[in-house]
Nucleic acid binder design. Structure first.
Lengths: 257, 257
DNA sequence: AGCTTTATTGTCAACATGACGATAATTACC
DNA sequence: GGTAATTATCGTCATGTTGACAATAAAGCT
């Protein structure tokens, strides 16, 4: 049996290595009025003209993936400094994603507090927030394989909330327990018991930090303002290590005997 | 303010989209003699000649990523049908990974039972299993950014065991609870209490299925043989949905009132 | 002042977990 | 062949966590 070994740039390789156009796409999620929303642009050109798509574009020479994703998002929203947490989601392709040819795309996930996107002129691809529900229930159609990527993004977001402190990435710097809870409710599509949620959120070591400040002006009793504890703060791009998980099967040390 | 929008293949874009060589790498993990091992090839050419690297190679035209990863792994190990579970890990680059130029690589993770790799002639890049410990403790050096990728792979593998039934991917079709436990111990680098592990593994609904068969010939009392329950079986390539997790904060429905 | 609203604390039963004792069913050894 | 060693499996118990829900606190509203 012959073993064929390919190697980067190896002259012996049968042909020059294939090169692919590489794009980054960003699935930006936020919670508005208790509903999960996603940032989409309206395509002005074919293919999928008039359909909605994630902000994104080509990776440029000398750029890394996360860098490119941040740049594209900033460009297409007109927002200079992105709030929230950006991380890589996964890569798709290159086969059969684009009618014009093979394109590899590296999808990213942004979990962010609600931020306003710039209203561009009518000749630009307008970015705007759309309720996820409208996409899932078929009232809005996405271009390319973006519906599938959105599914993966939602799955990722849901499990992030389960095992990491990243729910707080949807909130601003300071937030109340109720605001945090509404994030969980929106992402999971469930209602949570406010009392048990409060107990768990405040009772998890290394998760929240009381700022000492309170809300004022809202209806009802004022709420304490919290922020993420230093250890729980995400490093942008880094897969966040879960801080607060009672996992399935825990590394449970035992006397070596 | 001007908004610059890039678009795939858009003629108005400043220049033709950059194209990158795209490779797939496979971090193949297995457990041998209670120790976590990784499959590596010895590089025969520069750069990093003599250093160890993951099996991998270029994505070919018309191929999807997972497909390419499986093909490369099969070619470089001489193994026709790969056992275990293969999934995408993440993408790295393209900047500064290879002294010869920008290369994007999509790393994959294989969790597999121990399988023999083909011994090739001395002119081929020989694939072999190496104890992870030797890499982590610096006795073996990896090429490119593979040390960093290995770190990410280990992190992923560890959390897969916590939240998914994928520990069983390291075992064969049928296995004993003790074999499964030794997987957890090897990946996590801890000892687990056999009695509590047994209780948890057999007591988790939708995880294991008793085959009715037993081991024979080994020392000690014969053990019951289990296999993964149908629902827990991974779909290759798909991020496995956790079946057995007591998560941090669980979607806990509450009367809508 | 009293009602409404939201936040927060507390209680309790059911369940899960970690530590570890006891027993069962084999092979290994003399 | 009997006893020891080995491994698997079941059981117990104290402690911790969870889900359900009552009660209290502190604001705004009328």
């Amino acid at each position: 049996m012959t073993i064929i070994t390919y190697d980067y740039f190896m002259p012996e390789t049968h042909a020059a290595p294939e090169r692919f156009p590489v794009t980054v796409d960003v699935v930006a999620l936020t919670v508005r009025d208790g509903e999960l929303n996603v940032l989409l642009i309206t395509r002005l050109i074919e293919p999928f003209r008039g359909k909605l798509a994630f902000p994104g574009g080509f990776v440029l020479a000398g750029e890394d993936l996360l860098e490119a994703a941040g740049r594209e998002l900033a460009e297409e929203t007109g927002v200079e400094h992105l709030p929230g947490h950006l991380e890589q989601l996964g890569s798709y392709g290159p086969k059969g994603r684009d009618p014009r040819g093979d394109v590899l795309t590296v999808a990213h996930l942004l979990l962010a507090p609600d931020f306003p996107v710039l209203s561009a002129g009518s000749d630009a691809e307008q970015a705007a927030w759309y309720p996820i529900r409208d996409v899932l229930e078929g009232r809005l159609e996405l271009a390319f394989d973006h519906a599938r990527i959105l599914d993966d993004a939602l799955e990722r977001a849901k499990s992030k909330l389960e095992y990491s402190p990243l729910g707080a990435a949807f909130c601003g710097e300071e937030f109340t327990i109720a605001q945090l809870r509404s994030v969980y409710e929106a992402v999971w599509g469930t209602r949570l018991d406010p009392r048990n949620f409060h107990r768990k959120a405040t009772g998890t070591p290394g998760f929240l930090e009381d700022t000492g400040r309170m809300t004022t002006g809202d209806a009802g009793r004022p709420a304490a303002l919290f922020r993420l504890a230093p250890d729980a703060r995400p490093t942008p791009g880094q897969p966040t290590r879960a801080v607060l998980n009672p996992p399935l099967m825990r590394p449970q040390a035992v006397d070596p005997k």
